[in-house]
């Protein structure tokens, strides 16, 4: 398969992943939705804004306040993921124009971010594999999802570093995209309605925004 074929394959996988994810979210509605009846005490909107805003800050939750390193690793991991997808899009977008890599300053920043992503991904994987408690709550999907994602970040980083490996990045992207709707990475979409619902729930009750 040529580069163009691989790029088309990535695009198809991306569409498949998006459609599968959307279908899964839409399907949850079949479990039944009922508008809340109790008169609100607080504001659902304020709760939702808090859930996606200040409530995401590391200081907002005890779980992240007391585990700043894990929080930082998680942030680094996700920055790496977003950067890797940026590299992928750039590679696909500008390949025809002969400029499949971003300009040097952007590339350097992207390299740092993918390095952070790899550190985050590998560290979290080791943490999961070595910690007996975390192991106890883990399923195979937790490991495979991390491996695929970290490998994708690594391929993006190597692509930035070496200027080659485009095919490997595209193949890695296809594998990752196909896997997204199958396992925990689906939280890339589920996160938003789940947190929306939590924010609405606690916002209506006046619990969100939290008072400290």
């Amino acid at each position: 398969m040529g580069d163009a074929g691989l790029r088309l394959g990535v695009a198809i996988c991306a569409v498949l992943a998006a459609v599968a994810l959307l279908l899964q979210v839409v399907r949850t509605r079949s479990f039944g939705t009922r508008p809340p009846m109790a008169e609100a005490q607080g504001s659902a909107l304020r709760g939702i804004l808090y859930a996606f805003g200040p409530g995401m800050a590391p200081s907002a939750k005890e779980s992240t306040r007391t585990h700043p390193v894990v929080y930082a690793l998680g942030v680094g991991y996700h920055l790496g993921i977003f950067t890797a997808f940026g590299v992928l899009v750039w590679s696909m977008r500008d390949a025809a124009a002969g400029s499949a890599l971003p300009p040097a300053p952007v590339r350097q920043v992207a390299l740092v971010l993918t390095a952070l992503g790899m550190i985050g991904g590998i560290s979290l994987l080791v943490r999961r594999a070595r910690g007996p408690l975390l192991r106890a709550i883990s399923i195979p999907d937790d490991y495979l999802a991390n491996l695929l994602t970290t490998a994708f970040i690594a391929l993006a980083g190597l692509r930035l570093l070496a200027g080659s490996l485009e095919r490997a990045l595209l193949v890695g992207a296809m594998l990752l995209l196909l896997y997204i709707p199958l396992g925990k990475i689906r939280h890339c979409l589920f996160f938003f309605p789940a947190r929306w619902n939590l924010g609405r729930h606690y916002g209506r009750r006046g619990t969100f925004p939290l008072r400290h």
Binding site: T28, S30, L133, I139, F190
Partner: peptide
């Protein structure tokens, strides 16, 4: 269970990433 869960519950059930940071809460 399907009847009791509701759409929001079905979303929540599929969103946990097993990060384990909830343990000490």
């Amino acid at each position: 269970f399907r009847q009791k869960l509701g759409a929001a519950g079905a979303l929540w059930l599929q969103t946990c990433v097993h990060c384990g940071l909830c343990a000490e809460s």
